[in-house]
């Protein structure tokens, strides 16, 4: 009975049936929102009163919105500090862990711990560490006879501080990725280098680094995507200050939408920002793949 049915309806039917859930999901939660946001772009709307057609005025406003460009710039600043820091630290730890040592698993899971813990916890915790007057870090600096640093209370330091915190949180993941990459490097390459009399630095520079190129691309793209959605850290820690130095693009979009009720405008900002994200990732891919 069953086999007759399945033969009658065939693979095509079953395949369509089985992928139907995705099609339904896609149309409601991906296609519709994108389409809707495209409509919103041309409207002024505070969700509670009717929409109002404004044509391209949201874009005109966007291009004269200095704060938004500041927010994009801040997000890029974050990336410029965060990505190299992340790669260097992760690479160092991964190379360390890749030696023949005991407790490798233990160290690896230790470094990985912040990755799994919610960003909220990390931010509440680091708010205590970063405090200027009573924070743990400044207390330590004082103990060593150094000066206190206004980690999150000065426009110059605030974004780098958030980038350090984000690195601390995510680096464990990239350590693991690099470890996988390191273990995939064939041993004979090093043996050959030994015969040629290469030192450890040369081996690292001429064998390890080139072999990790793919992982490097991956780490860069992953942290770029993560960095562009920077939100909860400044939201809880600084509210975007001091002097808008930690106002990330996502935080600004959130504020426009949910503090000030400019749904149409924030959809425009979101759309514009998403284009920038795509552009940056495409450029990254192009540049790195060419190497």
């Amino acid at each position: 009975m069953k086999s007759i049915m399945s033969r009658m309806k065939g693979e095509g039917f079953t395949g369509g049936l089985m992928s139907l859930p995705y099609i339904v999901y896609f149309s409601f939660f991906i296609a519709f929102p994108i389409g809707f946001s495209f409509i919103l772009i041309f409207h002024k709307w505070n969700i509670i009163t009717p929409m109002e057609w404004v044509g391209l005025r949201n874009f005109i406003r966007l291009f004269s919105d200095a704060q938004f460009f500041k927010a994009i710039l801040n997000t890029l600043t974050f990336l410029v500090i965060h990505i190299p820091l992340q790669i260097i630290v992760a690479l160092l730890l991964a190379v360390g862990l890749n030696q023949k040592i005991r407790f490798r698993g233990f160290f690896r899971s230790l470094y990985f711990m912040p990755v799994i813990v919610s960003g909220v916890v990390i931010t509440i915790m680091w708010r205590q560490l970063y405090g200027y007057e009573t924070g743990l870090l400044n207390m330590m600096l004082l103990q060593f006879g150094l000066d206190k640093i206004p980690w999150i209370n000065h426009p110059t330091y605030a974004m780098p501080s958030i980038a350090i915190m984000a690195t601390w949180k995510n680096v464990g993941l990239y350590v693991v990725l690099f470890l996988v990459g390191l273990q995939n490097i064939p041993g004979f390459l090093y043996e050959a280098a030994n015969i040629d009399g290469a030192g450890p630095v040369q081996k690292f520079w001429y064998i390890t680094l080139p072999a990790l190129n793919n992982t490097m691309v991956l780490v860069m793209i992953l942290s770029t995507i993560g960095g562009f959605s920077l939100f909860i850290e400044p939201f809880v820690m600084t509210g975007g200050g001091p002097m808008n130095s930690t106002l990330s693009a996502m935080l600004y979009i959130y504020n426009q939408a949910f503090y000030f009720g400019h749904m149409g405008y924030s959809a425009t900002l979101g759309f514009f920002f998403a284009c920038i994200v795509l552009l940056v990732i495409l450029i990254q891919k192009k540049v790195v793949e060419r190497d």
Partner: peptide
């Protein structure tokens, strides 16, 4: 006034 954020 200190330029800081007190938590307590």
């Amino acid at each position: 006034f200190p330029i800081t954020e007190f938590t307590g």
